[in-house]
């Protein structure tokens, strides 16, 4: 065990954990932010996607020690009350069904739009292809990303 200082959604948060434990569990079980989800544990589903220094990473596949001091953003850190354009577009397009994969989808979309404010279909498919949705919300995700690009 070791005390690791995380910079989580703009706030410092110390967690006393096994440094090899994936960041996902530090966020969920130690920092208490449960919006980031566990789906596969092997970097295959994207449910656990968070931003580290603005880029999307699979938090199940990164150790807690590796991100010490880096800026981590989870879905809870996007806005106070769904004000982020991606969240707005997600609500307007009524994207989520069960909702479980959606923070991974949203974080990936945020990262995409930060880099590319007007992505094409192919660019959307490319950036989002690592985030699986069993409920099949893909058509709406495409629409919502295009809408968010305009907000």
């Amino acid at each position: 065990m070791a005390v690791i200082e995380l910079l989580l959604n703009g706030e410092k948060k110390s967690v006393d954990v096994d440094p090899q434990m994936p960041l996902l569990w530090a966020i969920r079980d130690y920092a208490g932010l449960t919006g980031t989800k566990f789906g596969c544990g092997i970097a295959q589903c994207g449910s656990c996607t968070v931003l580290v220094d603005g880029g999307p990473i699979r938090s199940c596949a990164v150790t807690t020690a590796a991100v010490e001091g880096l800026e981590i953003t989870t879905v809870e850190g996007l806005a106070k009350d769904n004000e982020h354009p991606v969240q707005q577009a997600w609500i307007e397009e009524q994207v989520p069904q069960c909702g479980y994969c959606q923070s991974g989808q949203i974080m990936s979309a945020v990262a995409l739009l930060d880099k590319n404010s007007n992505p094409s279909d192919a660019e959307i498919d490319d950036a989002m292809s690592g985030v699986l949705c069993r409920c099949g919300t893909y058509p709406r995700i495409r629409r919502a990303i295009k809408k968010a690009a305009k907000i």
Binding site: R28, D29, L33, T34, G35, T36, K37, F38, T74, V75, E76, L78, A79, D81, N82, Q87, W90, I91, Q94, V95, P96, G99, Y100, Q102, S103, I106
Partner: peptide, 21 residues
């Protein structure tokens, strides 16, 4: 009609079984 559960599913507030301790 827009679903009231949806805003909870875009900001991480929706609680699933796996989130409970």
């Amino acid at each position: 009609v827009p679903r009231q559960d949806i805003p909870l599913k875009t900001n991480g507030k929706a609680i699933y079984g796996i989130d409970i301790s």
